[in-house]
Design a protein around this nucleic acid. Structure first.
Lengths: 223, 223
DNA sequence: ATAGTATCCGAACGGTCGTACACTTTCCAT
DNA sequence: ATGGAAAGTGTACGACCGTTCGGATACTAT
């Protein structure tokens, strides 16, 4: 994000304009990709909804792969904004973990991305490929799971879950339940799966020793 | 499958030849589609590995959509062969349900389809589209879940699970766990997720009242 | 004023795609 | 023997793809 000039501190009008265009294109790109995948992105199709034409977009991003990488990065921002940030109101450990579950279901349910969770679509799309795009998708997933594992570990250390509980096992279970809710709600147009998912998460966390009273609510509580 | 002539009962040599080619192309198509999706199928790419050329394949299937529909149908056959049939050795109800879990993990683990479970790939691909292909994918998923629900219901009726247990809730949980194992093993090249998945399934089924002794084994027992 | 840089346009390139059509070959029916 | 049906070949078409290039425009730096 180098929009300032070298000598004067003033922002470079050219780069400002470019960033604005890039941003507009990327916002369309992540929506498209959440539905049809990153492979289906095309400069031509994006130009049809962007304020610039095909070759401008191609020049702005350099190559299709760089566009795809930028889309993944933009999607990460949106994900953090809609899932991680809202859950920060809850204490680290089990409360935060549960808040993340609620925030994630709300994020998926609200169709922040038109095609449901952006990362669900692209993870499946790139799970058997090689290259920079796959690496970026894998990194995003690893970061998210590491974040979950961290809060599970804190929950175990704080005695909110049974001592000896495997944090990675619990993270796997959380991810599985959320993914299934997202996928099924899209494929079968069934909104009830979000409640099912939270029910399953309650069952599992309770089995891991969580106090049932801590796993309540269908909306994210602020602070 | 109308390969016999009208008058004599003998098979029509032309159709036999056509069916053989169709089958060869479809077997390549389902493998491709499990990796790159049904949209990425192309007559040209299939012709490169098939014993006939591009226009022959196009003529043989009529259109790309008909090829995609045939691929879904072929994938269903393969799925039944590798998951449903092996589990038939177990008694209906909870034993069958557990056998299906074991058979499914074995099927995913063995990469019967190169890109992991064919249906995982195409469900995500078509979850926000319309048309005959999507309808076929949805139908396959509904049939599979209905089959699971049936055995959960039998398990409840037989007292193998807690009375009052919601069969659809349990089926959702089973599907979620299996899907997550498949997806993660592909994306993160982590084979341990299959054990994690079975562990989670054990936790859930036990929470639903299943006897822990009935949920053992990492391989499918025959009869 | 001048040089240099970034955005954007318009046109063109080679390549792949799905589809269509005319044609030959193989096989069954009468 | 003759006609029809199906498989398979070869060619061609228009559409879209990613990428490249020359040039116009807007802005900054010196």
């Amino acid at each position: 994000m180098e929009t300032a000039t070298a000598t004067t501190g003033r922002p470079d009008g050219r780069r400002v304009r470019g960033d604005r265009t890039r941003r507009a294109v990327l916002d369309a790109a992540v929506q498209d990709a959440s539905v049809r995948g990153l492979d289906a992105l095309s400069f031509g199709a994006l130009a049809a909804v962007a304020p610039v034409n095909k070759s401008a977009i191609a020049g702005l991003f350099g190559s299709k792969e760089r566009l795809q990488l930028a889309a993944v990065e933009r999607a990460r921002e949106i994900f953090v904004e809609h899932v991680v940030v809202p859950a920060r109101g809850a204490r680290p450990g089990l409360p935060r973990l549960w808040a993340l579950l609620l925030a994630w279901t709300a994020y998926s349910r609200a169709r922040v991305f038109r095609g449901g969770c952006f990362f669900r679509t692209v993870e499946i799309e790139y799970d058997m490929r090689e290259g920079a795009v796959r690496d970026a998708v894998v990194a995003a997933q690893r970061d998210w799971e590491a974040y979950l594992v961290g809060h599970v570990r804190r929950a175990v250390d704080a005695g909110e879950l049974t001592p000896g509980t495997d944090p990675e096992q619990v993270a796997f279970e959380v991810v599985a339940v959320l993914a299934a809710a997202n996928d099924r709600s899209l494929l079968l147009a069934d909104e009830s799966v979000y409640d099912r998912a939270l029910t399953t998460a309650r069952t599992l966390l309770t089995a891991h020793g969580a106090d049932a009273g801590a796993l309540v609510g269908g909306a994210v509580r602020q602070v």
